[in-house]
Nucleic acid binder design. Structure first.
Length: 541
RNA sequence: GCCCUCAUAGCUCAACGGAUAGAGUACCGGUCUUCGGAACCGAGGAUGGGGGUUCGAUUCCCUCUGAGGGCACCA
């Protein structure tokens, strides 16, 4: 945990500690102190708005308070923190409305770069379920959001030290209407879900003698199998568990057990021949039906049993990534969670933790259209990947927040794919790789120490930006803003290109060793960030 | 009718309540025998309307307008 410890546990927290201590020395009761990474490198490596926040409480102007704080920090630095502070922080200044900016010494930056990133393993068991498309057809572009968000989030959480299980829930219960409809189609008694691809799968199966449910499950498994292959090979998303509703909840009797439990705990009642669940007593808008009047359970029984199953397997955090068309179920499942006593998250939030991916709408000739299978205007994820490549598609879906409403225009997608920011980032990586390769055949030149190198602003900005990596990962593992990865990768590429412009690593027959080391760390950090997004970092393009 | 989400540059998107609201793309001007020009530098261009809270609001609250989604004995 060297680098992570150095910069999060030591540097960031150390600054937080000395600011807090300075506040107390002035006689201010200190609460939360925010330490940030300023966007502008001229504002230092770390920055705090403490004086602005506490200025009013002390009746002093923010700038004046900031000045006092800096004075206290400098005063107590040697006695309280020893010589360490002087070795790591070169300059503290008051700027703007009253910000206090901290500039690291070159040796602090250098040692951070040398140590490289590593993370503290918490081993907290996290389950993340995503995609979970019905086994009635192929994945379309709407599934792309939850697919790439879930996959990248799982990668980030795993890197941040959590024990992550990625899970896919297969809605293959023979009791579901979808499966029955699919069965009808299989037996030639319906048209639901029929596509050329589905018909091809139907021809490969002998349905004679099967009832609708059996035929539906059979066909669903064929669809599921090809979807699974596409998800793994085409999308590069890996799942640890493929959870079959039909086998592991219905056939195993878990659904029945859950139903009995709900009844015995007096959480249900009968009305109009159906069995209802009292979720409204736990914050839900209205009570849903658990068992229909025809005796068949609804999806809800299985969904409750499924989530209970996850908690029973020891997961502390249970995450679901759903489409916006399911957002109405969030409150319902969380009401069930309170009902059954599912544990809260570390931040005392309800479980399951649900992320809602806004739906994707289509645009053609400037006109918005609703994506509809029946109208035939569905864009399959498969087609997108085939046309643009997985890197472009992944970036396209990952560089924006999950709650943005994206409209998809194929013409714009084509135009943008050629000038996609992902190429910009990959290009910066390839360039750095090329430099490193070139230096292998050269001798080390003179006067190449790091302190001199980072006198060049772009070199310093690049070094500082690289050291942000573990903080970016840590922050995403807290706030789940996966799209910040794309932004970080882009800013790394921007800094790398500026560095390339200002610093010659290889010149004549020799190379600058500290510049080369910085270039290599930049290359590795870009690659690692892209890899969290599931995007490749080619050595040459 | 009720509920959820969203509205930022011509376009696609950023911005823990903070510093001059940032990128990419498009358009305009420049760099140019390059450690890889898929690059670099410069210019113009934006917070839907109206209130409120705050030292400070794109961000929080209210309201209006517009867009998407939900409100099944479908999943």
């Amino acid at each position: 945990m060297a680098w992570y410890a150095h910069f999060i546990k030591e540097m960031k927290e150390k600054i937080e500690a000395i600011v807090t201590e300075a506040l107390e020395a002035i006689g201010v009761e200190a609460g939360v102190v925010h330490i940030e990474r300023p966007a502008d490198s001229s504002h230092g490596d770390y920055s705090t708005n403490t004086a602005l926040v506490y200025g009013k409480k002390t009746g002093v102007s923010p700038r004046e308070l900031a000045g006092k704080l800096v004075e206290k920090i400098l005063e107590s630095a040697d006695s309280r923190l020893g010589r360490g502070l002087n070795l790591e922080i070169e300059k503290i200044e008051v700027a703007g409305a009253g910000f206090i900016n901290f500039f690291l010494t070159s040796s602090a930056l250098e040692s951070a770069l040398e140590k490289g990133p590593s993370f503290l393993k918490s081993g907290e068991k996290v389950n993340i379920e995503f995609i979970s498309t019905n086994p009635t057809g192929e994945l379309h572009i709407g599934h792309g959001r939850s697919a790439f968000f879930g996959d990248a989030l799982a990668r980030v959480l795993a890197l941040a030290g959590k024990d992550v299980t990625r899970e896919f829930y297969i809605n293959d219960s023979r009791e579901s209407n979808q499966i029955r409809e699919l069965g009808k189609t299989a037996l030639g008694k319906g048209e639901q879900y029929k596509t050329p691809e589905l018909e091809e799968k139907m021809r490969a199966i002998d349905f004679t003698g099967m009832d609708e449910e059996t035929a539906g499950v059979k066909l669903a498994h064929a669809v599921q199998e090809s979807n699974r292959k596409f998800i793994e090979k085409g999308l590069g998303a890996h799942f640890d568990v493929w959870f079959s509703e039909d086998k592991e909840l219905r056939a195993s009797g878990e659904n029945g057990k859950m139903l009995e439990r709900l009844k015995s705990q007096n959480l249900t009642y009968e009305k109009e021949g159906a069995l209802w669940l009292k979720t409204s007593e736990y914050g839900d808008a209205e009570d849903p039906v658990l068992v229909r009047s025809n005796g068949v359970p609804t999806y809800l029984v299985a969904d409750i049993a499924y989530h209970q199953n996850k908690f029973d397997r020891g997961f502390k955090t249970v995450i679901d990534v759903w489409g916006a068309d399911h957002h109405g179920h969030v409150k319902r499942m969380q009401a069930v969670g309170r009902m059954l006593g599912w544990p809260k998250t570390q931040n005392d939030a309800d479980q399951p933790v649900v992320f809602i991916a806004q739906l994707v709408s289509l645009k053609e000739d400037g006109v918005s259209k609703k994506m509809s299978k029946r109208a035939g205007n569905v864009i399959l994820l498969r087609d997108l990947v085939e046309e643009f490549g997985i890197d472009v598609v992944r970036w396209f879906f990952s560089d924006r927040a999950l709650n943005t409403q994206m409209t998809f225009d194929m013409a714009i997608a084509r135009e943008q794919s050629e000038k996609n920011p992902v190429f910009y980032t990959q290009y910066a990586h390839a360039r750095l790789a090329s430099i490193a390769e070139k230096c292998k055949g050269l001798k080390e030149g003179k006067e190449t120490n790091f302190a001199d190198l980072i006198k060049i602003p772009s070199a310093r900005a690049l070094a500082s930006k690289i050291t942000e990596f573990p903080e970016v990962v840590a922050e995403i593992s807290r706030d789940y803003n996966v799209h910040a990865l794309a932004g970080y990768a882009t800013s790394l590429a921007i800094e790398a290109n500026a560095f390339y412009r200002d610093v010659r690593v290889a010149d004549g027959g020799t190379f600058n060793s500290s510049a080369l080391a910085l270039a290599i760390r930049a290359k590795e950090t870009i690659a690692e960030t892209l890899s969290l997004l599931g995007i490749s970092a080619p050595e040459r393009m």
